[in-house]
Structure formats: C-alpha cells, structure tokens
Amino acid sequence: MNAFRFLGDMTHLFSVLVLLLKIYATKSCSGVSRKTQELYMVVFLARYMDLFTDYISLYNSVMKVVFITSSAAIVWCMRRHPQVRRTYDKEQDTFRHVVLVAAAFVLALIFNERFTFREICWAFSIYLEAVAILPQLVLLQRGRNVDNLTGQYVFFLGAYRAFYILNWIYRYFTEGHHSRWISWLSGLVQTGLYADFFYYYFLR
C-alpha cells in the first residue's frame, strides 16, 4: 500500500460520503444522476465478487463492504425513499446507460487478461467504471444550478482515479512490470472524461 493508493481510496470514500451527506442532509437528490449511481453499484458488485473468496486484508475487505453498501444505499434512496425520490429529475437524467453496460461487457469478453469468469468480471468492472460518470456529467452540463455538494462529489471522484494513476506509476517502478494495460487505459480514459469538468469547475 503506497500513499497514492491510500489517498486515492480515501478520496473515493470521501466522494461517496459527500454524496450520502448531501442526500441525507437535504433529503434531495436534485442534480444527481441515478443512472451513474446504478452503474457504480454494478461496478462494485462485479469487481468485489471475490470479497468472500479471497481475503487480502482487513482494510481491503472493509472498504469493499463500504463501497458496495453505500452505492446500494444511494440507489435505494433515489428509488425508494419517499422524500428523496420525488426530487430526482427523471426527465433530465436521460443518458442510455444500458449502452455503456453492453459496451463494457463486449470489451471485457474481447480484452481481458484470462478468459475466466473472474477476469472477465474484473475487466468489465474496470471498463464500466471508466465511463460510469457520463450520465452525471451530461446532467451537470444540462442543469444550470450545480449545487456545490454535487460538484464536490464529482471533483473527488475525478481526483481518486488520478491518484490511482500515480499509484500505478509508483508500483511500476517499485514492483516490476506487471501487465496493467487494462487499468492504465481505462484509468486514463476515466480521468480524461473529468478534464472538461475540472476546467469548468475551477473556472466558475
């Protein structure tokens, strides 16, 4: 565990907590894309399937449980919570996210490290995570009023993968040259998608 990866995990955790706080404190999810939250829930379920089979560390297991339960809680709130669900802008959140799931799945069938169920699920979750933010970015560009908690949520989410890229660079030079091309390419695409958001976020 290196500082970049720990910072990345903490930034990622913080982004989820900011979103949970916003929804819980304001009892509103206006400006939040439910589709992006659903995609993240699929990403975590597909990637953390090994939660019960491979024990890596207490930290690793605890964080996996936290990410799965928090993303499920956010989706539940946006779908079932009587007050919150009313504030969801269904007409604005129109990105066809099924296309993203299908594309990531096809990519994972073609480009994976080994043609096994686990590796294909892992690659699928990496590809899907790279594009999961798209519905949210589209919603932000449509909505005039980006409330600052939602803006901070997206900012921390962009920063987390940027830290992971630094982590991969660090591990490349310290741990030998594992083939990380799936993580590299997806991580760069993922962080790149935030570029225009960061540009406007800082300009505002």
Binding site: D9, E113, N167, H178, R180
Partner: peptide, 10 residues
C-alpha cells in the same frame, strides 16, 4: 514478466 495485474487494489 507479463504477470497479470495483482487484484489487491480496490
């Protein structure tokens, strides 16, 4: 050594 990427990351 193109070992597969370790899955110890979140």
């Amino acid at each position: 050594d193109c070992l597969s990427a370790p899955k110890d990351e979140l």
